[in-house]
Amino acid sequence: MGEITLGQYYPSNSILHRLDPRVKFIGTILYIVSLFLVNSWIGYAMAGCVLAVLIGLSRVPLRFILRSMKPVLFILLFTMIFNLLLTPGDVLVRFWIFRITREGVSLAVRMGIRLAFLVMGSSIMTLTTTPNELTDAMENLFAPLSFFHVPVHEIAMMMSIALRFIPILVEETDKIKKAQMARGADFESGGLVRRVRSMIPLLVPLFVSAFRRANDLAMAMEARCYHGGSGRTQMKPLKYSKRDFIAYAIELAYLAVCIIFKVRGL
């Protein structure tokens, strides 16, 4: 097992990479909201233009962004086909028990565009932001929730520790697998049921080792005076600079335009 890239961060030094992760996080949410606000071709064209500009600014090669579509391709096609076949209205084509209607085509295309833009828009965020920055941003943005006794700091700490341990555990799985293959374990042949069952002897030692690691880590953290989020300072606190405020302004302007489009029924 070679290099494991976490998330899908694409290292670069573009303006989008340098933006504060909170700006990107909020921007992504606003963009998703806007996709469901606009319902006209001109609105989609605008969302498409914004997306194109963002992709250009991110300096991430287009194929990385398209690759992010792969996992959702099935859902995308599924939704489109259902919308295409099951929407009542002016019939265009009729075959077997299906009727393709004018409304169906329109709805399917809209749905497709929405989902595709949604996935690509959020993948721009994950491609330009490291998982750690994202965790920091979420901890910071959700901090007010701790007022309602939501353990925001603890959840963020858990996320970042999980991120750090994923490669270690993947490596460990590989090691256990090889050790068992060396003693004649068979992970490759047989049907699905057999292959899943052959994973059980892999999972038991993996869990044991994960718990042992967790125990060690907890002790190491306590030894270094970790006692939750209270009274804790940050080495790399998030700090807004001028460009972040400009980005916020642009985000708000975009949202305003979308709302105007919605109100005017464009």
């Binding site: 991120l163 750090r164 953290m221 270094r224 005076c225 970790y226 006692h227 804790r232």
Partner: peptide, 21 residues
């Protein structure tokens, strides 16, 4: 492996002082 908390070297070294405030 089981005592390094940070995902970057300097963040890990900073973990203790962060806890001390």
């Amino acid at each position: 492996d089981n005592q390094i908390i940070g995902t970057v070297v300097d963040e890990d070294v900073g973990f203790g002082p962060e806890n001390l405030g």
